[in-house]
Amino acid sequence: KTVHVNGVQYDFDNPEQAERFAKEMAKKAGLQIQFHGDQIKIE
């Protein structure tokens, strides 16, 4: 899974790890999470 945070890309082999990371980042920055198939976007 790939997580995009403000244009920066983070790759994870483990989907659960990717989602946990995305939730942490979104919570910290007060941003929205969008799921697009294999990609998670935080903007």
Results as ranks from 00 to 15, higher is better:
residue 41 K to R: 13
residue 19 E to P: 00
residue 43 E to H: 10
residue 43 E to G: 11
residue 19 E to K: 07
residue 40 I to M: 07
residue 23 K to F: 10
residue 25 M to S: 04
residue 19 E to Q: 09
residue 34 Q to E: 11
residue 35 F to G: 06
residue 24 E to Q: 04
residue 4 H to S: 09
residue 24 E to H: 04
residue 3 V to C: 12
residue 5 V to S: 01
residue 8 V to H: 07
residue 16 E to G: 05
residue 31 L to I: 09
residue 24 E to I: 03
residue 36 H to N: 13
residue 10 Y to C: 01
residue 32 Q to R: 04
residue 17 Q to D: 14
residue 34 Q to N: 10
residue 34 Q to S: 13
residue 22 A to D: 02
residue 29 A to G: 09
residue 42 I to T: 07
residue 13 D to W: 02
residue 10 Y to G: 01
residue 19 E to A: 09
residue 32 Q to N: 09
residue 19 E to W: 15
residue 32 Q to V: 12
residue 22 A to N: 02
residue 39 Q to A: 12
residue 20 R to S: 11
residue 12 F to N: 00
residue 13 D to K: 05
residue 13 D to L: 07
residue 43 E to N: 09
residue 17 Q to E: 15
residue 40 I to Y: 06
residue 23 K to Q: 13
residue 23 K to N: 10
residue 9 Q to L: 09
residue 26 A to W: 02
residue 19 E to T: 06
residue 35 F to H: 09
residue 10 Y to E: 00
residue 16 E to H: 05
residue 35 F to W: 13
residue 25 M to C: 15
residue 8 V to A: 03
residue 25 M to K: 01
residue 9 Q to V: 13
residue 11 D to S: 11
residue 27 K to H: 14
residue 35 F to Q: 07
residue 21 F to S: 00
residue 29 A to H: 15
residue 36 H to T: 10
residue 42 I to Y: 07
residue 34 Q to W: 10
residue 23 K to V: 09
residue 38 D to K: 03
residue 15 P to R: 11
residue 36 H to I: 13
residue 4 H to L: 13
residue 16 E to Q: 09
residue 15 P to G: 06
residue 32 Q to W: 04
residue 34 Q to L: 11
residue 12 F to H: 00
residue 30 G to Y: 04
residue 4 H to T: 13
residue 30 G to H: 09
residue 36 H to E: 12
residue 8 V to N: 04
residue 6 N to M: 10
residue 1 K to M: 14
residue 6 N to W: 08
residue 37 G to E: 08
residue 40 I to A: 04
residue 23 K to H: 11
residue 27 K to V: 11
residue 18 A to Y: 03
residue 15 P to Q: 12
residue 28 K to F: 11
residue 18 A to W: 04
residue 39 Q to N: 11
residue 16 E to P: 00
residue 36 H to V: 13
residue 20 R to Q: 14
residue 33 I to A: 07
residue 43 E to A: 07
residue 18 A to K: 00
residue 42 I to H: 07
residue 5 V to P: 01
residue 38 D to S: 09
residue 10 Y to S: 00
residue 43 E to K: 05
residue 20 R to P: 00
residue 28 K to V: 12
residue 13 D to E: 11
residue 2 T to I: 06
residue 38 D to W: 08
residue 36 H to W: 13
residue 2 T to F: 04
residue 23 K to C: 14
residue 6 N to K: 03
residue 9 Q to D: 05
residue 26 A to D: 06
residue 12 F to S: 01
residue 8 V to C: 15
residue 14 N to R: 04
residue 28 K to N: 11
residue 32 Q to E: 11
residue 14 N to D: 13
residue 42 I to E: 05
residue 23 K to G: 03
residue 31 L to A: 13
residue 27 K to W: 11
residue 16 E to N: 04
residue 12 F to L: 04
residue 38 D to A: 10
residue 30 G to N: 08
residue 5 V to L: 11
residue 38 D to I: 09
residue 41 K to G: 08
residue 26 A to L: 08
residue 19 E to R: 09
residue 19 E to M: 15
residue 37 G to Q: 08
residue 36 H to F: 13
residue 7 G to V: 00
residue 15 P to D: 09
residue 40 I to Q: 06
residue 20 R to K: 13
residue 2 T to Y: 05
residue 40 I to W: 08
residue 28 K to G: 06
residue 18 A to H: 00
residue 21 F to I: 03
residue 12 F to Y: 01
residue 1 K to A: 11
residue 9 Q to N: 05
residue 4 H to Q: 08
residue 39 Q to S: 12
residue 27 K to G: 13
residue 11 D to V: 14
residue 16 E to K: 04
residue 38 D to G: 10
residue 10 Y to R: 01
residue 4 H to W: 15
residue 14 N to G: 03
residue 20 R to N: 11
residue 32 Q to G: 07
residue 12 F to G: 01
residue 20 R to Y: 11
residue 30 G to A: 07
residue 40 I to R: 00
residue 29 A to D: 12
residue 8 V to W: 04
residue 37 G to W: 07
residue 17 Q to W: 06
residue 26 A to T: 02
residue 15 P to A: 13
residue 4 H to A: 06
residue 3 V to S: 01
residue 10 Y to N: 00
residue 30 G to P: 01
residue 17 Q to T: 08
residue 13 D to G: 03
residue 22 A to F: 09
residue 30 G to R: 00
residue 3 V to W: 02
residue 4 H to Y: 15
residue 19 E to C: 15
residue 15 P to K: 11
residue 38 D to N: 10
residue 12 F to D: 00
residue 39 Q to Y: 14
residue 3 V to M: 02
residue 40 I to G: 05
residue 22 A to M: 09
residue 10 Y to T: 01
residue 6 N to I: 02
residue 14 N to H: 07
residue 42 I to A: 06
residue 42 I to D: 06
residue 39 Q to D: 11
residue 31 L to E: 05
residue 3 V to L: 04
residue 9 Q to R: 14
residue 12 F to C: 08
residue 1 K to R: 11
residue 9 Q to P: 08
residue 29 A to I: 10
residue 1 K to C: 15
residue 26 A to G: 02
residue 38 D to R: 00
residue 10 Y to D: 01
residue 15 P to Y: 14
residue 29 A to W: 15
residue 17 Q to I: 06
residue 26 A to Q: 04
residue 21 F to E: 02
residue 22 A to L: 12
residue 25 M to R: 00
residue 22 A to W: 11
residue 42 I to V: 12
residue 26 A to I: 04
residue 17 Q to L: 09
residue 3 V to N: 02
residue 40 I to E: 06
residue 43 E to W: 11
residue 24 E to A: 06
residue 37 G to S: 08
residue 42 I to P: 07
residue 42 I to S: 07
residue 7 G to H: 03
residue 19 E to F: 13
residue 17 Q to A: 13
residue 21 F to A: 02
residue 28 K to A: 12
residue 12 F to K: 00
residue 16 E to L: 08
residue 2 T to G: 03
residue 20 R to T: 11
residue 32 Q to C: 14
residue 18 A to P: 00
residue 20 R to G: 04
residue 14 N to W: 04
residue 28 K to I: 14
residue 33 I to R: 00
residue 8 V to S: 03
residue 8 V to D: 03
residue 9 Q to T: 10
residue 11 D to G: 04
residue 16 E to C: 14
residue 31 L to V: 12
residue 30 G to I: 03
residue 28 K to Y: 13
residue 31 L to T: 09
residue 21 F to W: 09
residue 11 D to Y: 15
residue 32 Q to T: 12
residue 2 T to R: 03
residue 18 A to L: 02
residue 20 R to E: 14
residue 14 N to T: 15
residue 40 I to H: 06
residue 32 Q to S: 13
residue 12 F to R: 00
residue 27 K to M: 14
residue 20 R to C: 15
residue 42 I to R: 01
residue 10 Y to A: 00
residue 26 A to E: 07
residue 40 I to F: 07
residue 21 F to K: 00
residue 8 V to E: 05
residue 40 I to S: 05
residue 38 D to L: 09
residue 36 H to L: 13
residue 18 A to N: 00
residue 38 D to C: 13
residue 39 Q to E: 11
residue 38 D to M: 08
